[in-house]
Design a binder for these strands. Structure first.
Lengths: 208, 208
DNA sequence: AAAGTCATGGTACACTCGTACCATGATGAC
DNA sequence: GTCATCATGGTACGAGTGTACCATGACTTT
């Protein structure tokens, strides 16, 4: 097993000249991202990852262990980043529930390179797990669940009519952005088009 | 290359004792389905397929050629079956545009074993192609496109208000069922739940 | 100064996979 | 009756993969 939490009795080497453990992990994880981006998950082998990251195969093993553990770490990383982006967008908007909701929903749609890579990795890993093993790791479900909860929260604070079924509306919105995102990845729609569609749905909801 | 269209000057052996070409292909394609169902696409190797179908590896090659060609044939098959199911559901309902629309949309959602297998194969193959090569084969896009067109057709015949943006509504519905289906596959929602959500959206659309 | 740990490289092993090649009955054509 | 063609089996080969193993400098600790 790799370094683990190492209660490291040596507080040494914080600003070391050679990369720290965290930097090395980052370096390798980023390499995995680039590889998945244009070779798919099946192209992400120990050798290709090592080459892309400019390190030896041994080092990838050293930091991440077996292949499954590596992919799990990648999944955790992309989930953490997605969550961070979601919260970021949320806080960057004014207090209006509707605007916050909109910003949050759009954070799921692949608009720039960063979110496109994240989405690609997410889909690759998630479907791979789902298909090969029947279920995905917990982290994989955490993001959409958080999304759903956040939508519910915003809808409640929006003070919609009492006849609005908030949970169902949240499910509709969450699955909607899922589908929209996939269609953007597919290239069947542009990000602008699907955002327009999303706004259409939001308009109806907030006008109803 | 396998048999091809063979303008077969011999009209012989239509009711032969040993399986016909079409039966053999069917037999192998079904085996692929069962394998993908519980082993994922990566579990579908020539050897596993041959064993599952009860034939030799050579025979799988003989009928489908290379692995890519095999997977392409599988994709075509599942697309054809999905289309057939769509049309089936469509014709099995009375003339009401709304009911036809509803039946058609539900045909995308994995409700029984058959549609679940189809959906799994569809997602496996489509994402695999999308990731590994950047785009999927044409057949892969045909189904959602047909879905979209059919939705538009039904909405037009439904005589909704003139302020209804039919194309956008069709996009919303199509991407919605995409997302809903995936969530059912994930196990995060049951088919009943997502159908209820879908009905909610339909109600709003037809009441608006 | 010795010893131990950390971070790293190189490499060999066993395995699986896709594919190509060779063989052989059966069936129909001439 | 000979011969080509079809449908099928068996198998060998080369490439790639994940992983385990051994080696070695650089630091820390004692």
């Amino acid at each position: 097993m790799p370094p683990e939490k190492t209660v490291t009795p040596s507080p040494s080497r914080p600003p070391s000249p050679s990369p720290s453990r965290e930097e090395r992990r980052r370096q390798i994880l980023d390499a995995v991202g680039r590889i998945i981006l244009d070779g798919g998950l099946s192209g992400a082998t120990f050798r290709s990852i090592a080459t892309e990251a400019g390190v030896s195969v041994r080092l990838v093993q050293y930091y991440f262990g077996t292949r499954d553990e590596l992919l799990l770490a990648v999944q955790e990383d992309v989930a953490a980043r997605s969550t961070a982006r979601l919260i970021d967008r949320l806080e960057a908007t004014d207090g209006s529930p509707r605007e916050g909701l909109r910003a949050m929903l759009i954070s799921f749609i692949p608009t720039d390179d960063d979110s496109r890579i994240a989405m690609l990795m997410y889909v690759s890993l998630h479907t791979s797990w789902l298909m090969d093993r029947g279920s995905a790791p917990e982290d994989s479900y955490a993001v959409p669940r958080l999304g759903h909860a956040t939508i519910v929260d915003h809808l409640e604070r929006a003070g919609l009519g009492e006849d609005v079924d908030i949970d169902t509306e949240a499910t509709l919105l969450m699955t909607l952005v899922t589908g929209l995102s996939l269609w953007v990845l597919d290239g069947m729609h542009t990000a602008e088009e699907v955002i327009a569609a999303l706004d259409h749905q939001l308009n109806r909801l907030f006008a109803g």
